[in-house]
Design a protein around this nucleic acid. Structure first.
Length: 426
RNA sequence: GGAGAGAUGGCCGAGUUGGCUGAAGGCGCUCGCCUGCUAAGUGAGUGUAGGGCGAAAGCUCUACCGAGGGUUCGAAUCCCUCUCUCUCCGCCA
């Protein structure tokens, strides 16, 4: 959510910047709602002031044993007016908030103007793309031949877009999770958290999934609970409605959770394999920092995620999302795209974003500086570190051998009792 | 699931015959004083959000005592609903 006062005093700038990311702000509606709200609030406060003052008078008169009945009957009318306004005002505020809640974040000044993913500039590349002397297979074929991925049984148990991993397919997934958590806690200084996998609507609103993206979520019938689409939601909401102290910033959390997404609107996309699932595992990095540090914190968070791929020796590139491809709450986003030889393309495996104060304002997460009074909103950031299922995909496709086996990257072997290769029959 | 108790400021904790209590007291914290160190002592200050006036310091108004409704001229105090916490019993990974 943007700051009401900021929008009010920078309407043209806001409208212009939002246009760059394809959002049309209804300025006249905003203005009229804002003015209604302010004038109504002013007269309501006047009435309340009167009521408070006269009530004190009544109390004083009664103490002296005087008759206050005329004042009381007068205040009855005032009280009714107040009640009427108190009923009316929230409707205006609601409409204004709804409008404000649907406005996306303003892109960071370094973000390139563009329409779609095609306009995303590549920031850097890492690793050598391996030359195959045979046609590399897509991971679903590798996995099914090795008997570690089973999509048809998963569909029987649940439905399409679910997967069943067995044997080493399950073990490698677990190894990847542990490997990533160890790197981020031991080397990068993140604190591990294991949050609830279901959250309430306040939390979903805090990070921006609600009210706009309800269709993307799974909701628990009869409860105010949703399955989390990413650990970003429960972890960012750890500090909802809190005032943090300057000394504890930046706060860095790493969290493994499964993620659940309805994938509404992506019918027919990536129907094969592990790429796009209703349920997948992810290790997520989340940071809270003060505003002047968030640019730098995004760089280091992205580097922390990249390091996982470097350890696993998987080639990748980093792109900076252009204005038109930016997510709703993000001011700036780097996507890390890993090379998938089986499909011959770069595929997003991590998305690292600086949300500036956008989520913090919604979720009311503030901090207090040592000097100076009052509070300020923190900046929040997060990024995958990494999407585990897609990492498995990358390992299977990049490390496949002509005979259908898969070489395990060195860094992962300690997590698999030294196992170096997945062969058939295992 | 059954029976109780509770939810107040950064923390602890008063206030429940409704009326200068945004909230006593204590702790913590900030600034100053004192003690040549440490401890102690001492003075002042110390919530958040929104609005008005002001160049600013500041002054002033409104709201907030778990959340939402209700009663009343007036609610932290009374009533209802919900959420959460705690104790006992039952059940359970």
């Amino acid at each position: 959510m943007l700051d009401l006062k900021f929008v009010r005093s920078n309407q043209d700038v806001v409208a212009y910047m939002l246009k760059e990311r394809g959002y049309d702000l209804d300025l006249s509606r905003f203005q009229s709602l804002d003015e209604q709200r302010r004038s109504m609030l002013a007269s309501l406060e006047d009435l309340r002031y009167r009521r408070n003052k006269v009530s004190d008078q009544i109390a004083a008169m009664k103490k002296r044993g005087e008759d206050a009945s005329s004042l009381i009957s007068e205040m009855k009318t005032v009280s009714k007016e107040i009640k009427a306004m108190e009923a009316e005002l929230p409707e205006i505020v609601d409409q204004l908030n709804k409008l404000l809640m649907l406005i996306p974040n303003i892109p960071h000044e370094s973000v390139v103007v563009g329409k779609s993913a095609d306009d995303n500039p590549v920031v850097r590349r890492w690793g050598e793309i391996r030359e195959f002397d045979f046609a590399p297979f897509p991971h679903w074929e590798i996995g099914e031949k090795l008997n570690i991925l089973d999509f048809s049984r998963a569909a029987k148990i649940a439905r399409g877009r679910f997967s069943l991993q067995s044997g080493l397919g399950a073990t490698i997934e677990r190894a990847l999770i542990n490997f990533m958590l160890d790197i981020h806690t031991n080397r990068h200084g993140y604190t591990e958290v294991l949050p609830p996998f279901l959250v309430n609507s306040d939390s979903m609103t805090g990070t921006g999934q609600l009210p706009k993206f309800r269709e993307d979520l799974f909701k628990v019938d009869g409860w105010d609970l949703f399955l989390i689409p990413t650990a970003e939601v429960p972890v960012t909401n750890i500090h909802r409605d809190e005032v943090l102290s300057f000394d504890e910033l930046p706060i860095k959390y790493v969290s493994y959770t499964p993620c659940f997404r309805s994938e509404a609107g992506s019918w027919g996309k990536d129907t094969r394999g592990l790429i796009r699932q209703h349920q997948f595992n992810k290790v997520e990095l989340v940071k809270f920092c003060c505003p002047e540090d968030s640019d730098q914190e995004l760089e280091s968070l992205t580097a922390d995620a990249e390091e996982i791929l470097q350890y696993l020796e998987l080639p990748y590139r980093v792109v900076s999302l252009c204005s038109g491809d930016l997510g709703f709450a993000a001011a700036k986003t780097y996507d890390i795209e890993v090379w998938l030889p089986g499909q011959h393309l770069f595929r997003e495996i991590s998305s690292c974003s600086n949300f500036t104060d956008f989520q913090a304002r919604r979720a009311n997460i503030r901090f207090r500086r040592k000097t100076g009074r009052g509070t300020e909103l923190v900046h929040t950031l997060n990024g995958s570190g990494l999407a585990v299922g897609r990492t498995l995909v990358a390992v299977l496709e990049n490390c496949q051998q002509p005979d259908g086996s898969v070489l395990i990257p060195e860094a992962l072997r300690p997590y698999l009792n030294g196992l170096s290769i997945i062969g058939r029959g295992e």
